[in-house]
């Protein structure tokens, strides 16, 4: 890493987060792409049907179902897994910020980042509440 400043300084944290995000985007886009190739091979000749909203099947709506689909090599589940990785990345990044504020003993921002993290967890847990 090019930056030589103090560890856990705001600048250091921002740079680490930047690297993490870039890697995360590449990994999740690769999952989506791989799933997409299988999806098009299997369903490419079918007709698209998005005019009427029916919502996704239950297995594509939650962490557990998506993971099961990945293990059974379902193409739509694989794409959804890549999308899920993307959706969870900001949460991972806020967790990291939370930890950095703990290291800096910055009480105001420990609370601020905890609230943001709470909102993210609430969002993904919404279906179970």
């Amino acid at each position: 890493m090019a930056y030589r400043g103090a560890r856990w300084s705001d600048r250091w944290v921002a740079i680490v987060v930047g690297y993490f995000l870039r890697t995360g985007v590449i990994v999740s886009a690769a999952c989506v792409f791989a799933g997409g190739v299988f999806y098009l091979m299997k369903y490419g000749a079918g007709l698209p049907d998005y005019k009427v909203f029916t919502g996704e099947p239950a297995d594509l709506r939650g962490l557990h179902g998506i993971w099961k689909d990945v293990l059974s090599l379902h193409s739509r589940g694989m794409i959804q897994f890549g999308l899920l990785l993307l959706m969870l990345m900001p949460g991972a990044w806020i967790s990291f910020l939370f930890f950095s504020f703990v290291m800096q003993k910055d009480r105001t921002y420990i609370i601020a980042s905890a609230i943001v993290l709470g909102a993210l967890i609430f969002s993904f847990a919404g279906g179970y509440l």
Binding site: Y39, Y43, T54, E56, L60, M87, G126, G127
Partner: peptide, 17 residues
């Protein structure tokens, strides 16, 4: 966006295809 993504996902708004 991530804060609404969870709600969208559990409500079935996010279609992989």
């Amino acid at each position: 966006a991530a804060a609404s993504a969870g709600v969208y996902l559990t409500r079935g708004f996010i279609d992989p295809g």
